[in-house]
């Protein structure tokens, strides 16, 4: 390649660089037939290819999203994620104030749903005044069921499991646990972001 940015034919490598990204250039017919331009484009394309190789090498070196580096980032993040309302707990001493965060209970509900074979949690809400001890609370959970699992049976199993867990881990007065199946998931095969057809509308 030349030391100058401008080729013998008068076009510049800067123009070819932009052409590579946008497909636009003043004189496309010339570019198609000019050996200088074609050589310049080939060189730039080769560089792009190397760039993609560097990217895959860097991504491979970055490790998996399930590795420790990401786990420690996520552990830190949890502290920042919306804690929600503070749910009071009975204390043994009037001077003390004890709480569970709403976020901790929602996460618990989701983990129960996620741990049940064939189901994954979606939205989860505690309706009612959780900040007042003894107030009636309704739990709303949306779940996705993996294709092939009977929905009614999965929902009933989850309702039972949640009632038991919430009775042990909270002091909430649960009036009802409403479970809605909002999605059916394909059985395991790698999902691509382009498959986003099952998205629900709010």
């Amino acid at each position: 390649m030349n030391t100058s940015d401008t080729l013998e034919c008068g076009h510049s490598l800067a123009e070819l660089s932009a052409y590579l990204d946008t497909g636009q250039i003043a004189d496309p017919v010339h570019v198609e037939t000019c050996p200088e331009c074609q050589a310049g484009l080939a060189s730039l394309r080769h560089l792009s290819e190397l760039g993609r190789e560097l990217l895959s090498s860097d991504v491979a070196e970055a490790g998996s999203g399930t590795d420790d580096w990401m786990q420690s980032i996520l552990d830190n993040l949890r502290l920042e994620l919306r804690p929600g309302r503070s749910i009071p707990l009975q204390s043994g001493n009037p001077q003390d104030t004890l709480w569970e965060t709403e976020g901790s209970i929602s996460a618990l509900i989701r983990s129960v749903a996620d741990a049940l074979p064939g189901t994954a949690a979606g939205k989860c809400r505690l309706h009612g005044d959780v900040t007042t001890p003894g107030a009636d609370i309704t739990v709303e959970v949306e779940i996705a069921v993996v294709y092939g699992h009977p929905m009614e049976e999965r929902a009933a199993a989850l309702r039972q499991e949640l009632a038991e867990t919430l009775a042990v881990q909270t002091e909430l007065t649960i009036q009802a646990i409403n479970i809605t199946v909002t999605d059916v998931l394909e059985p395991p095969h790698p999902a691509s972001p382009a498959d986003a057809t099952t998205e629900e509308q709010p």
Partner: peptide
């Protein structure tokens, strides 16, 4: 059973759905 399955199930969920759920406060 257990969390490996749950992990796997979330891995099946496409970006758009996860982003919608996350915007809704779903930390998982």
């Amino acid at each position: 059973t257990g969390s490996p399955a749950a992990q796997h199930q979330l891995d099946l969920v496409p970006d758009a759905l996860l982003a919608g759920r996350a915007a809704d406060g779903d930390t998982a």
